[in-house]
Amino acid sequence: MSASTENYVNYVNMDAYLGLNRFEVDEGNPHIELVDDIDILEFEKLMRVCPAALYRLDENSSPSFDYAGCLECGTCRIACGDTIIKKWKNPEPIMGIQYRYG
């Protein structure tokens, strides 16, 4: 986790939480795409606001984003729609999150 983000996210816990949700993952067909040349400061913003913590740094401290697990809230689109979010659309039919409680 980068120095500018103080509140550490426990990704192991996060993944366990996301594992409780019901998802249909549309393999190979992301509904959210980032620009190729990612501004790391913008990316860190998404690390802070995404309620599924899907914006992460990998072991080389490079930005990594996995759309599987997305809660389809749209927060990243509002936060960085002008900068590094290139595409945000609804998942294909029947794909994505399926809340049972909501």
Binding site: N7, Y8, V9, V49, C50, Y101
Partner: peptide, 30 residues
């Protein structure tokens, strides 16, 4: 802060933790 980190510390707050102690998370949403 991160929103996910905030959620964890909120759940651990001394005024909140006893309310949910022993509870089982069944869904995480945004």
């Amino acid at each position: 802060e991160t929103i996910c980190g905030l959620l964890e510390s909120f759940k651990a707050h001394p005024a909140v933790a006893p309310l949910i102690a022993g509870g089982k998370v069944v869904e995480h949403s945004g």
